[in-house]
Nucleic acid binder design. Sequence first.
RNA 1: GGGGCCGUAGCUCAAUUGGUUAGAGUACCGGCUUGUCACGCCGGUGGUUGCGGGUUCGAAUCCCGUCGGCCUCGCCA
Length: 595
Amino acid sequence: MAVAYNKRTHRCGELRRPHVGQHVTLAGWVNTARDHGGMAFIDLRDHTGITQLRFTPDHAAAHELARSLHNEDVIAIEGMVVSRGEWTNPKLTTGEIEVEVTNIDVLSRCDPLPFQVNDDFEAGEDLQLRYRFLHLRRPEMQEIFRLRDRIARAIREFFHEHGFVEIETPFLTKSTPEGARDYLVPSRVRAGTFYALPQSPQLFKQLFMISGFDRYAQIVRCFRDEDLRLDRQPEFTQLDMEMAFVQREDVMDIVEACVQRIFKDALNIDIPLPLPRMTEHEATERFGIDRPDTRFGLELLDVTDLMHEVDFNVFREAIDKGGVVKCIVASGGDKLTRKFTDALAEELKGMGGAGLPLTKVAQGAGGVELQTGIAKFLQPIAAKLCQKIGAVTGDTVFFMPGTNADACKYLHHVRTRLGTILDLIPKNKWDLLWVVDFPLLTWDEEEKRWASTHHPFTAPLDEDLHMLDTDPGKVRDKAYDLVLNGTEMAGGSIRIHRKDVQTQVFRILGISDEEAKEKFEFLLDALRFGAPPHGGIAFGLDRWVMKLAQANSLRDVIAFPKTQRAMCPLTNAPSPVSKKQLDELYLALKPLPNK
RNA sequence: GGGGCCGUAGCUCAAUUGGUUAGAGUACCGGCUUGUCACGCCGGUGGUUGCGGGUUCGAAUCCCGUCGGCCUCGCCA
């Protein structure tokens, strides 16, 4: 019989002992069905929880119908809340009661499922995405997206409370040089020309400052056509903000306050302020990367000077070429099996490395004795080495020769692996820090030119400005990256607000005056007409959700994400389009290369 | 573009390392069942071992190719 499903009296997670005796109307999905012949039970689920329904021959029509139900059928019921008495189920928040059903209405039957919604088995990820609407029905997914909502709302509220104006920026915009590959959108009205989807609203928010909005913030989608990773999707969401008349401390202060608010509202965790700060130089020297995970030690140590005395070709070559030898000292030797270190060395080779020289520290008759690996080369300086790097009996020392950048890259990987296998990474620790004073420019060896470390609009430090022409590699910038447990969560900078400096930076980047005019004339114009000093930041919202939800992948916190090959298994996008659509755009497809 | 792991029933996995008819749980179908709560019990359907080729007396297992998923380097101002 029909049930007024639009007049639900409660949700499925709400009923408690005080409701006993009430007539209620509930609706939801069949989580499980248990048929005992003369009596049947249904666990009814919605996003709030589960209520057990009881069906008996006292209400024969409802009872008969209930016995035919399957998982994920959609039903509405009327009934009376009754106490479970001795049959209380402590595993359910509603476990003290059940609903004696008098009337049931089957709203929608469910076909056999591609995977079960109500069990703990993880379906393959491609299946999850193909049937994403089912996967999102699971309580743990519901929890993630409600956390996402809390985080986004905390951010939005925070910025509105602090006088920021939310203004939208275009998605159909101009392709820019530098940076990531653009997603292009063909123009029909001006056939042969293309829009690009924004990699970020960077220039528009700078224009807002020049327009006098003073404080702007927007939660906005960004698009980058690059290869995907665990924590990289082609479209992702940023909290984008910008402030006028500020120095970088002003931006960092307000961002810190916002981060504190996010943790409080989303997880009820108190974050002490101010957050620690570290220069990019220190981060790289100590941890091998500009986004260090400071939850554990295993810091990098430079042993280049000691290795001058060592007769080991691999080290000698690196040093002769002006490189370094760095190392990591790890305790807990029994977990560092030959199998593990061999596999780690293989991983490094896969990354372009040469291998992983190592040795173990032991106690010999005459003092420190090194064993295995490259021990025989290092034995002459064993005592001196161990003293310098603080290695003691039982430790394993991992070495990496090469350019400083390579040694850092590979040892960072080694450090991360060691942290995991040695179980050094504390659970439920939230290590936030700022990394500052990046080099403004990074030398691109492949293209033999300077490239922006962040982007071309980042302001140099005032005290380094004089080196811009003479020694551009030495110039530090006014950028700041916010790092959480080794992941970059936000990045921003004070921007260039002087036209002459901006022109100079474009020139150093190899952007010709003509190209600058063609691509950025609107920005250079804006800088001519009264641009206040300004700066801002962008948070990777998806990454915040991933971190705070302790999810394994960005895909778990995006409702309809792409696979690694940038496909959507749900909609099958991207897909071919009709000849008519192409004709309207005056586009023709080239034949695909044969493999 | 490079390196690596994986692909067996609708789903999650196994198959003693190349050896009989590829199994289990779950889902699905039929039957029994009045206190279950991942209910239980009895019976049943369900397989081109991703695809193509090769080695072999014999291949899910080994080799080559290909497709797909994932991790990673490059790339991601």
